[in-house]
């Protein structure tokens, strides 16, 4: 059974940059006493005291302004970031889908990309071999699948990536808005596959601004604000609350998160 148990988890990013990501600083710091130790590195608190518990069948929307920590929370749930304080226990096969194209190589064929993208998503070689025909059919790429991916148009690449992503069997499916960007161009067929994927997944957490998509896929929601959980509950209540606050509080607060992607 898939589950995500997060208890008072914090994610603090040290910002080294020129200040301390050099040995010189640490060495000088050690010699001089107080300067340049890890404790003096400026820290960005991307997530503060997050406590939540998700289990089989949960379909959770993650809403919040840009920089509220949605992507970071997804990465915490996927185990990419382990909490700097507090704890996170994730049980189950996680499929983080934050970026459709990550792990794909323009220089190799579509077939090879299907395989490697699947392996990256935690599938086995055999599982992917079973799915190749299905994916090939969905993408309608035909003979192009034997060509290097750099010869593909953007649309073809998206189709290939979607074909693979929607073919997997995750226990925990984590979707970032990157996938929402495809919403508009979603063919009816892709939509069906997408729904089937979500239906197969034990847990879904979906970060997006696209309310239509959220309403279709999720029933509960978490509102993240400045790295903290502001509200949670049934999707519509949280969305109403979120949008209500939205109007009297302009979104352009100082971003808590300094992450580039």
């Amino acid at each position: 059974m898939a589950s995500i148990e997060i208890d008072k988890a914090c994610v603090d990013f040290p910002i080294f940059d020129a200040k301390s990501r050099s040995l010189k600083k640490a060495v000088l710091g050690a010699a001089g006493g107080k300067i340049g130790t890890e404790g003096r590195v400026p820290i960005i608190e991307a997530l503060r005291e997050i406590t939540l518990s998700l289990g089989q069948g949960d379909r959770v929307a993650l809403v919040g302004h840009n920089g509220a920590g949605k992507s970071t929370l997804l990465r915490l749930m996927s185990g990419i970031y382990e909490p700097t304080r507090g704890r996170a226990a994730i049980v189950g096969k996680v499929a983080p889908v934050f970026d459709l194209g990550v792990g794909m190589d323009p220089e190799v064929s579509g077939y090879d990309n299907i395989m490697v993208r699947g392996l990256f998503l935690g599938m086995t070689r055999r599982q992917m071999e079973e799915r190749v025909d299905d994916i090939a059919e969905f993408t309608e790429l035909g003979d192009y699948l034997s060509m290097p991916m750099r010869t593909y148009s953007t649309g073809m690449r998206v189709r290939l990536a979607l074909g693979v992503v929607t073919s997997i069997d995750p226990e925990i499916l984590l979707l970032d808005e990157g996938i929402g960007a495809v919403d508009a161009s979603f063919l009816e067929k892709a939509r069906e596959r997408f729904h089937a994927l979500v239906a197969r997944s034990g847990i879904l957490v979906f970060a997006s601004h696209a309310e239509g998509m959220l309403a279709e896929l999720c029933d509960t929601a978490i509102w993240l604000d400045h790295g903290q959980i502001r509200d949670r509950g049934p999707l519509h209540d949280v969305l109403a609350h979120y949008k209500g606050r939205d109007s009297d509080e302009p979104p352009a607060q100082a971003p808590v998160e300094a992450e580039s992607r």
Partner: peptide, 23 residues
Amino acid sequence: MPPTSPTTGATTGVTAAAAAPSR
């Protein structure tokens, strides 16, 4: 907190021994 045994299958990535502390 449920006790989580390292039930990682051949295909699972990061989740083994997820209950143990990071360090």
